[in-house]
Design a protein around this nucleic acid. Structure first.
Lengths: 231, 231
DNA sequence: TTCATACTTCGATCGTAACCGAAGCATCGG
DNA sequence: CCGATGCTTCGGTTACGATCGAAGTATGAA
């Protein structure tokens, strides 16, 4: 009887704590099995199965059968962006989880945001790239400079090839719920994070969205992305 | 027991059809009374009152007492942006309301999006401004040019003063759920819409988000925002 | 084949929240 | 002061959906 898209359906889909927990867990970008997701949400496998079916029907997640496992992931980057913006909104209004747990500091320092680096380290990385002239920032819009291309090549990333390989924008600014400042998303953000992991500088936690830097990795990271002065 | 902001709470808040209808109604930017919102949602006044209390507690809406009326509005532009992005997501996935009602075409043609013009006319306006060199568009980022300032002055809008008067950005691009293309938001988008209404070119519908252009108003609008060729 | 694992489907229970009738405040007009 | 209007609070009903036990299906391993 009314016009327009149905917000209530998708709100209700996210509105259940069990489903919200599953989606949050999937924000790590990792593919997770039904059993793992049930654990993350604190429910039994049967209940999880029902929730997963609903999320899939709603276009939030996709599944990939592999042997007797079923791996679930967020359906696409659009879902990731929606969730992150909901998180930002929630953080902004103080809709926080019961209490900041022990993992909270680690999450604020470095975490995965769909498929790229967020948190303190993510913000620092972008700030440093902009300050060093590698990325040109006109507020929202981020553009990789020629100097930036060279710098990335030294790190083993071929920006031109990256640009060709996907329709997704190379550089994208993504707002952080913890820092309230922008960090680098897009294929470049993804490539950088994967570069850190490949080099063994960092690894992703199994059951949280935190990114753990090794002492040596942190040293290298900070040297690679210097800041003129402590913020 | 977990980390981060609580998505489920805000999802649940939006997830109830009655509340979603109220929020959608408030997307018109108009302040509405509890009775009007109850009508929009198709529920009794008592139920509406309970929902409104929850929405207010959640930071979604604000109320202003005026005599024996209570006027409700969206709490701020952030809420408006969240809802619009949810609508976009929903439209994208085909989560549509039961059936496209009779008002649907009018909404696609011109409607209010929080406080500025959206729909076919909104998209055309931005396209024309960009094509005419009044606004410089670097993908996401919109910048008013000197030529644009003059053009607006001719329409009776003082862009410099507008910029000073608010922290809100002057130009902002906002993605449309019906057109899947950008239209103009920000204080400038608002000022333009209000200009149309003041001139009597258009008026807002009482109970929907549609903007109705008069025949003469439509003629003036199309003349003011020409497009080189039919899209 | 048989057993184990990973997951889905079915059925029943249970809690919560949406809902409305009725009554209670507040504000306005007269 | 009165009644009318706009809205909130209270109480009781109802319905939906989240939950899990138990049983069923698929894949893999022995």
């Amino acid at each position: 009887m009314k016009e327009g898209p149905d917000i209530a359906q998708i709100g209700a889909l996210i509105g259940d704590p069990a489903r919200a927990n599953m989606l949050t867990a999937l924000m790590s970008g990792q593919a997770l099995t039904a059993t793992e997701l049930a654990g993350a949400a604190g429910i039994t496998l049967q209940t999880a199965s029902s929730h997963l079916a609903k999320l899939e029907a709603g276009g939030f997640i996709a599944q990939r059968k592999q042997g007797r496992h079923r791996y679930f992931t967020l359906a696409d980057a659009g879902v990731g962006r929606l969730i992150e913006s909901l998180m930002g909104f929630a953080a902004d209004r103080g809709h926080l989880r019961h209490r900041a747990g022990p993992k909270e500091p680690a999450l604020r320092k470095a975490r995965i945001c769909y498929d790229h680096l967020a948190g303190d380290f993510g913000v620092r990385m972008l700030d440093s790239l902009v300050a060093g002239g590698a990325i040109d920032a006109a507020d929202d819009r981020l553009v990789l400079t020629a100097a930036g291309e060279e710098r990335l090549a030294a790190f083993g990333i071929d920006a031109r090839q990256l640009k060709r390989s996907s329709r997704r924008p190379l550089c994208r600014s993504c707002l952080d719920w913890s820092e309230r400042r922008a960090h680098l998303a897009g294929t470049l953000g993804k490539a950088l994070l994967y570069g850190f992991i490949e080099r063994g500088w960092a690894r992703r936690s199994a059951e949280s969205r935190a990114i753990a830097f090794s002492p040596e990795g942190e040293r290298q990271f900070l040297a690679l992305f210097p800041l003129a002065q402590a913020a």
